[in-house]
Design a protein around this nucleic acid. Structure first.
Lengths: 210, 210
DNA sequence: GGGAATATTCCC
DNA sequence: GGGAATATTCCC
């Protein structure tokens, strides 16, 4: 049974500044799983001299992946990374995170930010629904009609409460964005320092050559 | 790995009339688990003539149950019924369904509708939050205070309009912050490119000097 | 594909 | 204890 914590110990506190959010466990695990299978393929190629069948692999250009054998994938690989062995649950997660099925006759999936060799992009992938600032889904329909002249006192109260919640969410979001910006500012500073070192170095060289 | 469906095949359709709702899987499983342990106790009593230690059991009067050994319970029993082996997750579920801890020095829990010999009562136990017709939990508290006798319809309307304005401002601010972030991302990319140029340059020089 | 209920985890 | 995010299941 998989028992690792969802996220690493460091980089946790939501109040710490200038952190990089770790990617959703689902994404890291799916990426791990592909790397593991890649590695297995490599090992077997050396041992046996043959490439062998793979259960799942990156596409040739590394912009997507294919589950070649859903049955083996579900029975053998899923339970080692997730708390289930259902292919459909895996697919449900892919959809939640915005992956697209990109071939009609194979289980091939793609996401702009999910690419071979680009683990650092994973943290830019987010769940599709429940945007922090959005109203609860089931109330959205009623919202439009609520502000009409005919709306009752209770309807107005409902709107007011929802606005308060949306407001709170927006403030939380603002805080997160501000922290991201703080992070970028630090990064920029470091890059500029680094750059100035090489800049001096480069121009000293140019001077010597004259 | 537990693989049974959450609910039996029959009694499913939410549109069929005169059906008996099956209880939440968590409740059935917890009940099963207690019956299983009861049965094991009975068998061992016959085989060995002694009652033996139990990991979990109904209380003497059957109105609650006690986890005598959380460690064994978590390692040995939980994974056979649930997709985890964490005692705290089990407790979280008990709280979700409204169970109360009824002893200070033991892990003893009770729920009015969870009693020995009364499996049919399980379907009357419901999750505490997210009643379909209710407001989100987090809004309930503020609702009461806001609907106090002293607040007039006009006051509520004023509040609502102010909230809408603040809301609009927050969204504008969000947009601006997001644009700042986009700017930083571009900048970072350019700095990295630039840096990589000087990096190569620097290392070529170092090589020539050797 | 995705909405929604339930389960599991993480955090206060 | 419980809010909230993520995971898993079930159903349309």
């Amino acid at each position: 049974m998989a028992r690792e914590r969802r996220r690493p110990i460091v980089g946790q506190s939501s109040s710490s500044s200038s952190r990089i959010k770790s990617p959703a466990p689902f994404l890291s695990k799916t990426y791990d799983l592909l790397e593991e299978e890649e590695e297995r393929g490599r090992r077997e190629a050396i041992e046996r001299g043959s490439w062998g069948q793979r259960v799942v692999s990156w596409t040739a250009d590394g912009t997507g992946f294919v589950v070649w054998s859903p049955a083996e994938f579900s029975e053998l690989m899923l339970p080692r990374y997730f708390k289930h062995n259902n292919f459909s649950s895996f697919i449900r997660q892919l959809n939640t995170y915005g992956f697209k099925k990109t071939a009609s006759k194979r289980w091939e999936f793609q996401h702009e930010k999910f690419q071979k060799g680009c683990r650092h992009l994973l943290s830019e992938i987010h769940r599709k629904k429940c945007e922090p600032s959005a109203f609860p889904q089931y109330l959205k329909a009623s919202e439009e009609s609520n502000n009409s002249p005919s709306s009752t006192v209770e309807e107005n109260n409902t709107t007011r409460l929802l606005l308060m919640q949306e407001n709170k969410n927006l403030k939380k979001e603002r805080m997160e964005l501000q922290m991201q910006i703080a992070h970028f500012k630090t990064l920029e500073l470091k890059l500029m320092e680094c750059l100035s070192f090489y800049w001096d170095d480069h121009h000293n060289k140019v001077r010597r050559l004259c």
